[in-house]
Simulated assay, not measured.
Amino acid sequence: FLNFVAEIRGYRGAQVKDKVNLAIEQLELESVINKPIETLSKGFKRRLGLAQSILHDPDVLILDEPTDGLDPNQKHQVRGLIKDMAPDKAIIISTHLLEEVAAVCSRAIIISEGKIVFDGTPDDFAARSSIHNAVTIRLTGENLDRVRSEIEGIEDVHRIETVNGTGVLRLIPKDGAVIVEKVSLLMRDKGFKVDEIFVERGHLDEVFRDLTIAN
């Protein structure tokens, strides 16, 4: 199949072999090169389709759900390939997987009912989440009421949530302010035992729902 694609793209002789071998290597298709296409798994069919699309090294590449049907390792490989090609190509990806946006895109456009409802970077997209820059803390053996009381004195903390009724607190900042440094210093100065602390990037699915349902 890939030999056929190379030939209709105008390659001949050694060029066909070189182009096909490069595509096979990039998509790791060595184990199935002699198998009929109809016997391949969905993941391998997806990778074969991507191989034929990049075989002629196009300047513009349009991909529809490029990692659909792939296992986590294959997704990582394909996303790595897309990132490697990105500096030299215009790559447009159509996808419903929001994790794809965060993983490989430098610009995101959300279309709902034929209208563009968002156009910006993935960071801009995540920043619209209600928990963007929120700080989540997991504590062990601490009096949460005392911890909450101390946190309430931090400027730019809008509200404090208890997550799933456990020893986990989520601190929602005012207007997406960066509060992690202030929170970390407070935990250290007060001697609170913190098992884990991290900054929430934002829930992309929440933003997507808000944009599309509102539209």
Rank of each mutant, 00 (worst) to 15 (best):
C105I: 06
L40D: 03
P58A: 11
F44Y: 14
S31C: 09
E30Y: 09
T67R: 00
D175G: 06
R209P: 03
V16N: 02
A126L: 12
I37M: 12
A134H: 01
R47E: 06
K193A: 15
K182D: 15
D145K: 14
D84E: 15
A108K: 01
L139S: 10
V157S: 02
V168M: 06
R9M: 11
I54W: 02
D195Q: 14
Q15L: 09
E155M: 11
S53P: 10
D18N: 12
N34S: 14
V199E: 10
H158L: 14
G202F: 00
I197L: 11
H96C: 05
A51I: 11
I131V: 14
M187A: 05
F125I: 02
I137Y: 01
N164W: 09
V5C: 07
E65N: 07
P72H: 06
V199K: 06
T95Q: 09
D124Y: 08
C105K: 04
K75V: 14
T121Q: 05
F4S: 14
E7A: 12
G10C: 03
P173G: 00
I116V: 15
G167V: 04
Q52L: 03
R170M: 12
E7W: 05
V101A: 09
P87S: 06
L171R: 00
T121A: 04
E196P: 03
G43H: 02
I8H: 05
V207K: 01
G69C: 07
E181H: 15
D71I: 05
I151S: 01
K17P: 02
D84H: 14
D189F: 10
G167R: 02
F125N: 00
R12T: 12
D156K: 12
P36F: 08
I172L: 04
E65K: 05
L185K: 11
V194A: 08
D59F: 11
K115Y: 11
E99Q: 13
V60A: 09
G191W: 08
I82K: 01
K45I: 11
S184L: 13
D59H: 13
V207S: 00
Q26T: 13
N73Q: 15
I131D: 06
P36C: 09
H203Y: 11
N21P: 06
A14V: 11
V194E: 05
A177R: 02
I62L: 15
E155P: 02
I116D: 07
D88K: 15
R201N: 09
E30L: 09
N34R: 14
E99R: 05
